[in-house]
Amino acid sequence: MEGMNGIDLLKEIKKKDGETEVIIVTGYGSIESAVEAIKQGAFSYFIKDHDPEELILEIKKVRDIFKLKFENKTLKEENKEKGYLIETNSLKFKEVLEVAAKAAKSDSSIFITGESGVGKEIIARYIHNLSLREGKFVPVNCQALSENLLESELFGHEKGSFTGAIEKRIGRFEEANGGTLFLDEIGEMPISIQIKLLRALDTKIIERIGSNRPIEVDLRFITATNKDMQESIKKGDFRQDLYFRINTIPIRIPPLRERREDLPMFIDFFLNKYEKETKKRILKVEDEVMNFLLSYDYPGNIRELRNIIERLIVLSDDGVIRKKYLPEYQKNSRYSSLTLKEYRELVEKDYIEKTLLEFDLDKDLASDFLGISKRQLYNKISEYDINLVK
């Protein structure tokens, strides 16, 4: 290299990006140069006439380190997101969190209901994290697996117990031993597995497929569904005795349209999240876009909100999120044609009415919750012509 040697290049690389790992490869190795390379931040030092396998081994070490760093970063981001989605300004969701916190102190079975995308797994993880259980949180989506695969996934199998069982495998019950087993979309579970599940819950004993050896398990059991379970029981799709067994502590998570107080917080969070992920700087969000994001009913709940914002940022130009990139259904929003001032007034009126109803028209409690004086509340009621009757 003209003008610099390997050590000089190493210094420049580390100066520009401290995360980049460098392996010095040289034909003229010496102890002094090796020490200097490591001192300046080289990952390792390789002399050309040595066994190439040594260099390959060093490269694999770098790869493994970066893989671990990426996994840790991803896990931190996921935990940060899940933790953030627990924060709330909604009275209804605060009640959910209170029940979840109390339930976490027991080992009772918990049954979480709510529409798709409301965050049922997030609440299940929240309960597990608040509990005294030291084992893992193990989620299973009952809808994503066929009957045979689901049984093997839950209970495990012995080698040769069925075609394709080329080795022994422990199931999710054993994996969750000492921790929490979360069965999402349990309403989709086949009847044959429901019978085996009920027995396992009652006895705390399971058997792997192809084995009659009993295995004791100790775990917290949480289930969730977005189905109408009473209707499923009537149709014979779900066993009533299993329903009673899993429904010790029921928790219903309200849809996003019932907790609009949290929308501004979620919108800001996902805007920041996808700004970083897409490496795009957002300078402006058009008023029509913000009106839509704050007024849309989100049948897909938090998952849909997240997807819409990701789409808007990906398609944005020059740091501006524009109305033309909104989904087609935005035209149905009741706020889409309002000015920002009109929109704010309408949302404020809706929020005051909702709060008054939640506190059974008690204006003292409502004003305290809203963070305004009782006189200010009366002024708002008069200004917006709010007439509510018990």
Rank of each mutant, 00 (worst) to 15 (best):
T88M: 06
E54L: 15
R281M: 10
I308L: 06
R208F: 11
K284W: 12
V347P: 01
K235T: 04
E95K: 15
E358G: 03
D8L: 02
E216C: 03
G83K: 06
E342Y: 02
L154Q: 15
K341G: 00
R322A: 10
Y296P: 00
K120M: 09
L370H: 01
K120W: 07
R259I: 13
K390W: 12
S116V: 15
E78A: 07
P254Y: 14
N148S: 15
P190E: 10
A200K: 05
S90N: 09
D64E: 09
M265F: 10
S382D: 07
L326A: 14
K235H: 02
V320P: 05
L242R: 08
L365A: 15
R257M: 08
L377G: 00
N247D: 04
D317M: 10
K284L: 14
K94L: 06
S161M: 06
S44T: 14
G114C: 01
T355V: 15
D262Y: 04
I308Y: 04
G371Y: 05
G178Y: 13
D107M: 06
K324F: 08
K92R: 14
P254C: 10
K120T: 03
E342G: 07
T225I: 13
N226G: 04
I215F: 08
G27W: 10
K273G: 03
L55G: 04
K354A: 13
D49H: 08
F70A: 09
G164A: 12
A165F: 08
D368I: 13
I110M: 10
L183V: 04
L315S: 12
F269Q: 01
D268E: 09
K363T: 13
E174Y: 00
R311V: 01
E185Q: 09
L283Q: 13
I193H: 02
V62N: 01
R239Y: 05
Y325V: 07
G187K: 07
A42H: 02
L242F: 05
G27H: 09
V285A: 13
K48M: 09
F359N: 04
F238S: 03
I302R: 01
E286S: 02
A101W: 03
D17P: 02
D360V: 05
F93T: 00
K76R: 14
D17E: 12
L149Q: 15
I166F: 12
K80R: 15
Y28M: 11
G371F: 03
G27R: 10
G187L: 08
I170T: 14
L294N: 09
S336V: 12
A101H: 08
K279W: 09
K324W: 14
V389L: 13
E353V: 05
G187C: 04
K349M: 12
G319V: 13
K11H: 03
Y298F: 15
Q143S: 14
D297T: 15
F173E: 06
E19T: 15
E304G: 03
E158F: 11
S161C: 03
K235F: 09
E12T: 06
R306T: 07
G135C: 12
I308V: 15
F359L: 09
L256C: 05
T278Y: 12
F182Q: 00
K67H: 04
I372G: 03
E98F: 14
V289A: 10
E174H: 01
S367Q: 04
G156R: 10
Y378Q: 05
E275L: 02
P327I: 12
E188H: 06
K374S: 11
K69G: 03
V35H: 12
A124S: 07
V118R: 00
V22Y: 02
K390F: 10
